[in-house]
C-alpha cells in the first residue's frame, strides 16, 4: 500500500508546494487531494515572477510550454528563407563533421527530420480540427502572443489563466469535430501530399502515385525540392531530411515504412526528386483485414 508510506521529503514538499511534483511513473497515479487548490501550475508559474530572486527552487521558476498557445497565429508566421537556408546548411555540415560515412550523414539528417515528423502529425491534424477563424481575431492574437512570449510581465493574468482554465483560450474549445484519424495508407499519404507539403513548402507536392509494380509502394514527387536548391555540389542527398519527416509522420501514425529519395531529373526540373514510400507488410495485412 504505497499511500501509507510517508516519504519525508515528499510530505514537506506537499505542505509548501502542494501538488507541484508532477507525474512519477515509479509512484503510479496520485489522487487529486481534497484540500489542494486545483492548479498546482500556479506555483510553478508564479515563480516566473521572481526570476533570479527565487532561484532557490530553480525547477519551479521555469516558464512552461503549457502557457503558450498552439494557435498558428500565436507568433510570427514567417522567417526569411535565407535564415532557414543558413541553418540547414550548418545542420548538414555538422552532420558531415560528425560522421564517418555518407550513409551516416544521411542517417543523421533523417533523424532530424523524423524528430519533426512525429510532431507535425499531431500538430497539423489537431489544428485542422479547429473551426476556421477560431481565435484569429486581432484581439485574441494579442492575447496569445502576450501569454506565450512575455510570460513574466503579467504574472497575475497568467495565474488567472491557470486557475480558471476557461480564461485560457485553448484551441480545443474551438473544436466541434476532431478531424478523423487517417486509417488507410492513401489517406495519410494525401495528408502528407497536401497538408504537410503546404505547411512546409507553401504548395502541395507535385504528384502522389501508387506503384504499378509493388503493392506496398507509393511515390511522392517534388519537381523542385526547396531544400536542395540551396545546397550545391554534394553527393549527400539533403532530402534525407524530408524522408525523415515523412517517415516520422507515417511511423507514429502506425504506418511503419521505409522512405527513400531518388533523383529523377527531367529536362525542366534538374532537381526533381521522387520520395518512395515502402510500407511494411503488416500495413497491407491490416488493410486486407478491414476490407
Amino acid at each position: 500500500m504505497k499511500q501509507k508510506i510517508i516519504n519525508p521529503s515528499t510530505s514537506v514538499n506537499t505542505a509548501t508546494h502542494p501538488g507541484s511534483t508532477g507525474y512519477d511513473y515509479t509512484m503510479g497515479p496520485q489522487q487529486t487531494l481534497p484540500d489542494l487548490p486545483v492548479s498546482s501550475g500556479t506555483i510553478a508559474a508564479s515563480g516566473t515572477n521572481g526570476g533570479s530572486s527565487t532561484a532557490a527552487s530553480a525547477h519551479t521558476s521555469l516558464p512552461s510550454v503549457y502557457n503558450g498557445s498552439l494557435h498558428p497565429h500565436a507568433h510570427n508566421q514567417h522567417v526569411s528563407l535565407a535564415a532557414f537556408a543558413f541553418l540547414f546548411q550548418e545542420l548538414i555540415s555538422q552532420a558531415r563533421n560528425a560522421s564517418k560515412s555518407v550513409s551516416e550523414i544521411e542517417m543523421r539528417l533523417h533523424r532530424n527530420g523524423y524528430h519533426i515528423g512525429i510532431r507535425l502529425l499531431e500538430l497539423l491534424n489537431f489544428r485542422s480540427s479547429v473551426s476556421p477563424g477560431f481565435g484569429s481575431t486581432s484581439s485574441s492574437r494579442a492575447f496569445f502572443s502576450k501569454t506565450s512570449i512575455n510570460s513574466s510581465s503579467n504574472t497575475l493574468a497568467l495565474n488567472n489563466a491557470l486557475t480558471t482554465t476557461q480564461d485560457e483560450p485553448s484551441l480545443a474549445q474551438g473544436i466541434s469535430h476532431m478531424k478523423r484519424r487517417d486509417l488507410k495508407p492513401v489517406e495519410i499519404l494525401q495528408f502528407i501530399h497536401s497538408t504537410v507539403w503546404t505547411y512546409l513548402f507553401g504548395r502541395v507536392s507535385d504528384d502522389l502515385v501508387k506503384s504499378s509494380e509493388r503493392d506496398n509502394e507509393y511515390m511522392l514527387v517534388d519537381s523542385a525540392p526547396m531544400l536542395s536548391q540551396f545546397i550545391s555540389s554534394t553527393n549527400v542527398q539533403c532530402d534525407f531530411f524530408v524522408c525523415g519527416i515523412i517517415e516520422g509522420i507515417l511511423d507514429s501514425a502506425s504506418f511503419p515504412c521505409n522512405v527513400t529519395i531518388h533523383s529523377v531529373p527531367e529536362p525542366n526540373f534538374q532537381q526533381r526528386a521522387v520520395f518512395v514510400v515502402r510500407f511494411e507488410q503488416q500495413v497491407l495485412e491490416r488493410e486486407a483485414l478491414r476490407a
Partner: peptide, 27 residues
C-alpha cells in the same frame, strides 16, 4: 522584409533548430 524577402514557415525553422539542439544534447 515585405517585398524583397523569400519567406518560409517560421515553425519549420523553430522545429529544425529544436531538433538540432536536442540532438546535440544527446551527442
Amino acid at each position: 522584409w515585405k517585398n524583397k524577402t523569400a519567406k518560409i514557415n517560421a515553425e519549420l525553422f523553430t522545429l529544425t533548430y529544436g531538433s538540432i539542439v536536442s540532438q546535440l544534447c544527446t551527442d
